[in-house]
């Protein structure tokens, strides 16, 4: 039985999605989650974003800095570093190739 749901598809491209929303502006955890949801990935959970950020950071694609906040806790901001930008570009190319292949396939089968 074939089941395609967004969660399954998202798993493969979550790294790329997080890198993409950080391309223009740095962001902190909850902010990044909000950007992804606003962009249309409504099913994404906080743990997914947090885990992905930690992993991308550990892999050396992100830098972090802490911004003190007047009211409430400090916010940890994530920013793309050059390695992250390279990764985003390469991942984007792979994705576009893959997406166009899938589009062709689906158009033929429709």
């Amino acid at each position: 039985m074939l089941s395609v749901d967004t969660t399954q598809l998202l798993k493969g491209v979550l790294d790329l999605a997080v890198l993409a929303v950080l391309r223009d502006d740095d962001g902190y955890g909850y902010d990044i989650l909000r950007r992804l949801r606003t962009a249309g990935l409504t099913e994404i959970g906080d743990a997914s974003v947090y885990g992905t950020l930690r992993r991308l950071f550990a892999a050396g694609y992100l830098t972090t800095y802490v911004v003190p906040s007047e009211e409430g806790p400090h916010r940890k901001y994530y920013a793309l570093n050059p390695a992250g930008r390279t990764q985003l570009k390469q991942g984007g190319d792979v994705w576009r190739g893959f997406a166009s292949t899938m589009n062709t396939l689906l158009r033929e089968s429709a």
Binding site: G29, Y30, D46, Y50, R54, A58, G72, P73, K76
Partner: peptide, 20 residues
């Protein structure tokens, strides 16, 4: 450790956002 190190701080952030 990589996963959990930052979790309390992150949760505090989330909690503050939720409250806001």
């Amino acid at each position: 450790n990589d996963l959990l190190e930052d979790l309390p701080a992150h949760l505090a952030e989330v909690a503050a956002e939720i409250e806001a």
